[in-house]
Write a protein that binds this DNA or RNA. Structure first.
Length: 286
DNA sequence: TCAGACCCTCACAG
DNA sequence: ACTGTGAGGGTCT
């Protein structure tokens, strides 16, 4: 086992890994186990930051630092949020929550599978997809097996009914269709980093099963467009209750509001609001 | 703009 | 234990 410690001030590892950005992390005895690319990995909170455990020697840890985004100056991000009591509460309730920087294909595929599903169900589907069609990975002795996320080529090669066996239902043709467009080069995921957010969003929305919300999730969680603000039912409910308690806003108005109100790090603000609604309010008011 | 369909699973009543 | 019902990080037509 190989250890590496990352300096990270103000990093809420558990909140970050369980916040519905990524679906492959599980808490095991106080640590978090998951897969990044083709590496099984265990993460835990340490005094000065984050401790990582892997099984093979690593020459350059930048891939993990990129993923974790531990070098982002969170204080300056938070200070860019609008000053209002709701944001203040959301930040206070999970200070240290971060945005990850995930692989575009895995992120895209995961969110195609997310529509009208609860987070636990998404995790279950993603797990099934990986264990059936991913590549088996090295894990510690005696540890349950772990698998990589299957490539777009692999998904494109499967039949719809093979995919439906993973309990993804009507999302199966969306996932397969998107994989095919990526394999054919009709949409080039690697090129979107060079685009501006509107162009990148338009490209993603060419894919079947990808509308505005899922596109924004991918822009935010994989490409690092921090102004992207995915609006789902939770956030919609939060915005409606907190900012427009009197008057119901149309989806279009709400989008305009988020684009102007939350600033350059709107995506971070969204993540804090989402986490706040889901963990604090959602449960109590249900 | 606006329903309704879309698969499937789980939680929760009765 | 068994069946019925509703809703779940949306998208498409």
């Amino acid at each position: 086992m190989i250890f590496h410690d990352f300096a990270a001030k103000n990093y809420a590892l558990a909140d970050t890994l369980s916040s519905g950005q990524a679906f492959r992390w599980r808490e095991v005895n106080g640590a978090w186990e998951g897969v990044i690319d083709a590496n099984w990995i265990r993460l835990s909170q340490s005094k000065s930051g984050i401790r990582a455990e892997v099984l093979q020697p690593v020459a350059d840890w930048r891939w993990l630092s990129d993923y974790l985004q531990n070098e982002v100056d969170l204080d300056s991000v938070i200070s860019s949020f609008p000053e209002d009591p709701h944001m203040a509460k959301a930040v206070e309730s999970s200070r240290g929550l971060r945005l990850l920087r995930q692989d575009p294909w895995e992120c895209l595929a995961s969110f195609i599978l997310s529509s009208t599903k609860q987070i636990v169900q998404i995790q279950q589907i993603v797990d099934l997809v990986c264990s059936r069609f991913g590549q088996s990975l090295r894990v510690p002795d005696g540890h349950p097996p772990a698998f990589s996320f299957p490539s777009a080529e692999r998904i494109a090669s499967l039949t719809e009914s093979e995919l439906r066996c993973c309990k993804m239902g009507f999302r199966a043709p969306y996932l397969k269709g998107s994989a095919e467009m990526i394999v054919s080069g009709e949409v080039k995921l690697a090129d979107l980093f060079a685009n501006n957010i509107e162009e990148a969003r338009a490209e993603l929305m060419k894919l079947p099963g990808v509308g505005r919300k899922i596109a924004d999730c991918v822009l935010l969680f994989a490409y690092g467009f921090q102004q992207a603000f995915p609006i789902d039912v939770w956030i919609l409910k939060a915005l409606q209750q907190l900012y427009f308690p009197k008057r119901k806003q149309s989806p279009k108005k709400m989008t305009e509001f988020t684009e102007s109100y939350f600033g350059p790090n709107a995506g971070y603000a969204q993540q804090y609001l989402f986490h706040y609604m889901r963990t604090r309010i959602g449960r109590a008011s249900k």
